[in-house]
Design a protein around this nucleic acid. Structure first.
Length: 292
DNA sequence: GGTAGACCTGGACGC
DNA sequence: GCGTCCAGGTCTACC
């Protein structure tokens, strides 16, 4: 079955797909030869399907197995969210039009970041990026899916686990089997709170809270500090904060401080002028990476 | 508000 | 093969 989804222009499929490392985290998979993004998803009715998403002249095409009407609407809604098809970055392009380091922002339709269908998945993945190397993040994510994900028929692939499946486990399994280390209690508590309905993470997608208040809410989640909260705000389309990690300190140091160590405050100061677009300006800055 | 130290894992390295 | 060091954010205690 083929679905066609229209994006708000300007839109560039590859810019979204390559916007950050999520593309390397299962159940995402990218085939460079065909330029296709694959994602294994567990639909609301429990059926596990794989999408194949490719760019088109004005949006994307989504290839799926045969779906009923309700499933079709669910897939359309999820893919639209994952690729931010309706997001509008015109004011960002206007604000940065004179900045040489961001001059290609509009040309390549930068601004959208690839996101998971559920905010729960993005929060879990973000916690898995904290205080560890990228290879370990990928491994922990794979272990989590292997341990708790529902399988795709006739395939080795699995969907990302639901909160219920993780909540039905315990932090000992998360630590010893999934190998998430000290993050285990945080992940378990998150899954339990979401599964029980105490915490409605999906409501944050449409929250009317000011960004500062939303940030405070995110930082109430165990394992989510300033970096993780800023990363999650970017995913939610709030760009007022910079996800300052060791990479940010390094590239800012190389860009403006001749490789001398810098503090998070110095990073913030460098992007202060971009106001509500600070996160976008940082994320899509044309860094001189030859020193990195 | 700022800072120090603990928290875990796995890769790199030296022996 | 073993031991040690290191990178990576968050949390807590303390000042």
């Amino acid at each position: 079955m083929n679905l066609t989804l229209i994006a708000r222009p300007p839109f560039n499929f590859l810019s979204v797909v390559q916007s950050h490392g999520w593309i390397q985290l299962a159940p995402f998979r990218f085939d460079e030869n065909s330029g296709s993004l694959y994602y294994v998803d567990r639909l609301a009715d429990g059926r596990v399907v794989e999408y194949r998403i490719t760019g088109s002249s004005n949006g994307v095409k989504v290839q799926t197995p045969s779906l009923n009407k309700s499933e079709r609407n669910e897939v359309k809604e999820k893919v639209s969210w994952m690729l931010g098809l309706d997001q509008d970055f015109s004011s960002f392009y206007k604000a940065v039009s004179k900045e040489p380091k961001l001059r290609t922002a509009k040309k390549f339709a930068r601004g959208r970041v690839l996101r998971s269908p559920t905010f729960f998945e993005d929060v879990v993945k973000t916690i898995l990026t904290t205080n560890t190397l990228w290879a370990a993040t990928k491994r922990m994510n794979l272990n989590l899916i292997a341990s708790f994900g529902d399988p795709l028929a006739d395939s080795d692939s699995k969907a990302f686990p639901t909160p219920d499946r993780i909540a039905a486990s315990n932090d000992k399994v998360l630590r010893e089997t999934v190998r998430v280390g000290y993050r285990a209690p945080a992940l378990y508590e998150l899954a339990v709170r979401v599964a029980s309905g105490e915490l409605n993470l999906e409501s944050y997608k449409t929250s009317s809270l000011p960004t500062l208040d939303l940030r405070k809410e995110l930082m109430k989640i165990k394992g989510v500090g300033p970096y993780a909260a800023a990363n999650l705000l970017m995913i939610l389309g709030r760009h007022d904060f910079i996800p300052i990690d060791s990479w940010a300190l390094k590239v800012v140091s190389n860009e403006w401080y001749r490789g001398k160590p810098v503090t998070p405050k110095q990073v913030e100061k460098r992007f202060e002028k971009w106001g509500e677009y600070k996160g976008l300006a940082y994320w899509f800055w044309d860094w001189d990476l030859k020193y990195s």
